[in-house]
């Protein structure tokens, strides 16, 4: 079965049952069942329009589901939204800081509306700014910060109150490699210090490798749900990567192998390849090939097998401008 069960020995902190949501004629979520345990790092992976954001918005109490229920720490998100929100920390895909306030003022606002008592609030702000290495920027106006720093402030902000579940919707999108790495380092550190459930959506598959469980969704359904290793073992395929020396070789290989995927880098990837294929290619093209290797199954290939789409393309075509909101047709900001 597609595993909806929780890792052993932990009580579920997020329980989703039969969750459905429809926008007009489009079925965004088609009966999702899911439970996520305490202290788990849970990755949600899927192509654009797979239903990830809809699911996240329902969990954040921003959207009401048509059918089914979702509970955060035992509170129903549509019937007890205020109590559910108290258990939630959210880092949205789009920026949501007040750029005219300072870093500290943004964090303090969050603490106030989440009713964090004064002393605890002051302590948490200091701790979280240390965690994301922004202590010196405490009194800087947010509009003077870089995109990566803003992201870090938002992560610090989601942790000011005692959230049982922290949802990060594409926390690293649009950031450079160094910032991305840093953000994951903070999250790892935090997890060792505090009991916390993290739900992360991302387009960067390499980031998902460090998660406890990965859930791949498409067309509003769960396609696979398991640990990264188990997913690789089950759905992953070995592939041959070829670096052709010239265009003629490249087109030659592409013509011979209709299932080959041409990458932007000039490499050609042959999914499901074996040593026999390598021999055949070397026999056929010989010196036309500058490099050939067999790659172990990647989560990338798992994703490709399950959804029939390559996730990197999605990331590349992701527009930086506001995307239309499926519900109202207006830009989401």
């Amino acid at each position: 079965m597609v595993g909806g069960d929780v890792s052993e020995g932990t009580a579920p902190v997020v329980e989703i049952a039969g969750l459905g949501k429809r926008y007009g004629r489009t079925l965004a979520l088609d009966g999702i069942d899911l439970s996520i345990g305490r202290n788990e790092v849970f990755a949600l992976l899927g192509p654009n329009g797979a239903g990830k954001t809809t699911l996240i918005h329902i969990l954040c109490t921003l959207l009401k589901p048509d059918t089914g229920t979702a509970r955060i720490a035992g509170f129903d998100v549509s019937r007890q939204p205020l109590k559910a929100r108290r258990q939630l920390g959210v880092v949205f895909q789009e920026p949501s800081l007040d750029s005219r306030l300072t870093v500290q003022e943004n964090l303090n606002f969050h603490g106030l509306v989440h009713r964090v008592p004064f002393r605890l609030r002051r302590r948490r702000i200091t701790e979280m700014l240390e965690l994301v290495e922004l202590t010196e920027w405490r009194h800087a106006l947010v509009r003077t910060l870089s995109a990566g720093m803003k992201r870090r402030v938002e992560i610090a902000r989601a942790l000011i109150h005692d959230a049982a579940v922290v949802i990060l919707d594409e926390p690293t999108v649009g950031l450079d490699a160094q910032s991305r790495e840093r953000i994951w380092a903070y999250l790892g550190k935090l997890r060792r210090e505090r009991e916390l459930t993290l739900i992360v959506t991302t387009h960067y598959i390499d980031e998902v490798d460090s998660c406890d469980r990965v859930c791949i969704v498409d067309h509003g359904k769960i396609l696979a749900l398991d640990t990264p290793e188990a997913l690789r073992a089950r759905y992953g395929v070995e592939q041959v990567r070829i670096t052709p020396r010239d265009l003629a070789t490249r087109t030659g290989i592409m013509e011979q192998n209709p299932n080959a995927i041409a990458e932007a880098s000039g490499d050609i990837v042959l999914p499901g390849a074996t040593h026999g294929v390598v021999d055949r290619l070397l026999g056929g093209f010989g010196t036309g090939i500058s490099n050939i290797s067999i790659e172990r199954p990647s989560l990338e290939s798992v994703f490709l097998t399950l959804t029939g789409r390559e996730i990197r393309d999605q990331a590349a075509e992701r527009p930086t401008l506001a995307r239309p909101n499926a519900r109202t047709g207006e830009p989401v900001n």
Binding site: V113, R115, F118, H161
Partner: peptide, 29 residues
């Protein structure tokens, strides 16, 4: 029944002033 207030009591961390604090935060901004 407010979890934040309960934490406060447990940690002796002062008061959160409940909804009034939130109102104050929004006003102040």
């Amino acid at each position: 029944t407010d979890p934040a207030a309960r934490t406060a009591a447990a940690e002796g961390d002062g008061r959160s002033f409940g909804a009034l604090g939130a109102l104050g935060g929004i006003w102040l901004r």
